[in-house]
Nucleic acid binder design. Structure first.
Lengths: 180, 180
DNA sequence: GCCGCTTGGAACCGATCAGTACCGTTTGCG
DNA sequence: CGCAAACGGTACTGATCGGTTCCAAGCGGC
């Protein structure tokens, strides 16, 4: 075997944590699902929390890279982020934003989980701000934060209603914020 | 004793669940904090889930009544809901929207918890829609759903940043949606 | 004063939790 | 070939989980 127990653990945990929630997934289940020995788990991670943080950091990098790649392949419109979001939230296994979910589950606002989730959102705002700036809008970042607010509102709407209409509404509102 | 174990359980659970999350609060802790006998708990509720649902339903009624009361005492502007929200989210113990949090924790989209949380949001949208209609806007409910999207986005922003600026931004965006 | 209902307290249940220790095996490298 | 590191599997820890059961005390109404 020996083929990267760490990577397998992170990949399996990423899926299980997202599908069922972090607290709801026990170490034993995670170990069974990943085919990794129990001892190997604790050789790679000091605790479940450490794994959670590693999963979130990994997901952060993947999500940001995917967003940048998708935006690079689009027409450059600042509204493109809503199309990326729509496709992401249209997946069959959609269960909300993993970072929002993690932030909600980790009640402690000073926790590392909170910090990582917040950092992810700030990084995403930064990407949006760059797109806006390239389109000739003010570099204040205010519009980008408004876009993020619309995205976060849309993700809750999609989770609640089970369809992508909230993303479409958010995009239209964003469009209205643009030409003004 | 004998003074309504049920009410005490719901009140205690409402506080503990909100502060620390539903899954994070065990039955034993809840019983200790409320001063209720363990047996009394299970006389009033079939399971922890039943208590969770009762708490959410109770909170739903309280929140909706408080919103209606606050709106009745305001100037009748459709934007009044954002002021209500701002005051609510400015509380020191703020930890997001209890219904969103419950929906996130209960991963199962078909669960009763999901149903209750969704019903709460729909009822709130209905209240907003009525305010909008009274102000002469279209009764389609589309604007009300947009307002709810802005509110949900704002609550995540407040949770993330720790200040009320997102609510102010949401209100300004809503204002822009109004005169158009 | 007595009866019936609700109460709080405690003991107990099997299951599961996160985390530790030790095992024999497999793997990559010199 | 041989060694060392990484591995998977199992057994175990104490703590806590949600839930059940029994009991004695307190209360209200008749």
């Amino acid at each position: 075997m020996a083929t990267q127990a760490r990577e397998r653990l992170i990949a399996t945990a990423e899926t299980l944590f997202y599908q069922r929630g972090i607290q709801a997934v026990g170490i034993s289940e995670l170990i069974d699902a990943s085919g990794v020995g129990r001892a190997s788990f604790y050789r790679h991670f000091d605790s479940k929390d450490a794994l959670v943080h590693a999963v979130l950091r990994h997901r952060n990098e993947r999500a940001l890279a995917a967003l940048e790649a998708a935006l690079a392949g689009s027409d450059g419109s600042p509204l493109g982020v809503f199309d990326v979001v729509a496709e992401r939230y249209g997946q069959a296994d959609f269960r909300g934003c993993a970072f929002i979910n993690a932030m909600v589950e980790a009640a402690d606002r000073g926790s590392e989980t909170h910090r990582i989730a917040r950092a992810h959102k700030l990084a995403q705002i930064e990407i949006i701000a760059r797109q806006l700036e390239q389109a000739g809008h003010s570099p204040s970042g205010e519009l980008a934060r408004d876009f993020q607010l619309l995205i976060d509102g849309a993700v809750m709407g999609v989770l609640r209603e089970g369809n992508l209409e909230p993303v479409e509404r958010a995009k239209q509102i964003a469009a209205r914020l643009l030409h003004l």
